[in-house]
């Protein structure tokens, strides 16, 4: 039972029930928009459903998952996904932190600067991916043109065509796109920190490097952890960037691209759902791991 105080200091009893009534519409929407499709996908993953036959379906047990585990392309996709996620997220965090620290200072035009920094994040991914695909084109892309003119390279580089470079390009574009988001989250965290610590540090004339390591980082830990969890889970679902930038070869696919191919292109709803469910499993596993690993730290500081 919750006990709240009115401004006059009187005790008000609230039933446990009323908040459920207020939450109900929101929960309904969540269940209908997220829960139902999710359950349906999991259900389909144990069947032989196809896109043209969603009604008369047979249960086939874990057969879909067995063939998924045997598929080399799937494991390649898993590897690609984690490579992208685990390289791009740390880079975004570090760059985001630097940008957040700069934007946290008082300087003229700070508001404008904050707006400008957000631009990559506000462009829809499909659009920015297309844009980058043109810029990275090996023959008439502007990136090669500039590098050639500057004399850095002497023959054009196939940025998104070579199998090793294309994953590097995808990571770079992802970093370009998502760093502003990271910066925004971290900036919000920075602004919530108690100012007195900084003032004290200033009075004691502690160098910035030391105050960053000793004051800012420990205080920012909860924010950083939450931001990293958010981004990692987001990065594992990466789809549009890969779909547009990669050559379409299965060797460059990520998990969600793989799932889409089977679900939609091959019309194999059962198997595609199994892949989607496996992706869900990875995300669930990671978030449980993250949360339980960080729970103590989160509570201690935050």
């Amino acid at each position: 039972m919750h006990i709240n105080f009115t401004p006059l200091g009187r005790k008000v009893k609230k039933s446990n029930f009323s908040h459920w009534i207020f939450l109900a519409p929101c929960l309904m929407v969540l269940v209908l928009s997220a829960g139902w499709p999710l359950l349906r996908t999991i259900y389909f993953s144990f069947t032989d459903a196809t896109l043209d036959n969603l009604k008369e379906i047979n249960f086939i047990g874990v057969e879909n998952f067995i063939s998924l585990a045997r598929d080399q392309d799937w494991w390649q996709a898993v590897l690609n996904t984690f490579l992208i996620a685990f390289v791009s997220v740390p880079m975004e965090t570090i760059l985001g932190m630097i940008i957040a620290l700069i934007l946290h200072r008082n300087f003229r035009g700070r508001g404008l600067m904050r707006a400008i920094v957000l631009i990559p994040w506000t462009i829809p991914t499909i659009v920015s991916a297309r844009m980058w695909a043109w810029m990275l084109n090996d023959v008439y892309g502007i990136v090669n043109e500039l590098l050639l003119r500057a004399g850095v390279i002497d023959s054009p580089i196939p940025w998104i065509a070579s199998s090793s470079l294309s994953i590097v390009s995808m990571i770079l574009v992802d970093v370009w796109k998502t760093t502003p988001y990271m910066a925004l989250l971290l900036l919000a965290g920075l602004q919530g920190l108690p100012q007195d610590c900084f003032e004290a540090a200033e009075v004691d004339s502690i160098p910035f490097g030391k105050s960053f390591v000793k004051i800012i980082l420990p205080l920012m830990k909860p924010t950083i952890i939450v931001a990293v969890i958010f981004r990692t889970l987001d990065a594992i679902r990466i789809f549009d960037l890969v779909y547009i930038l990669s050559s379409g070869n299965s060797a460059n696919a990520t998990m969600s691209v793989y799932a889409r191919k089977h679900l939609v292109d091959y019309a194999d709803v059962g198997f595609g759902s199994a892949a989607a469910t496996a992706l869900l499993f990875f995300i669930a596993f990671l978030s449980v791991f993250y949360v339980s690993f960080n729970r103590k730290k989160l509570y201690n500081v935050g």
Binding site: N137, V139, P156, P158, A161, S162, S166, S246
Partner: peptide
């Protein structure tokens, strides 16, 4: 043929 054609 240009190498980049693999993605064209």
């Amino acid at each position: 043929i240009n190498r980049g054609a693999v993605n064209h």
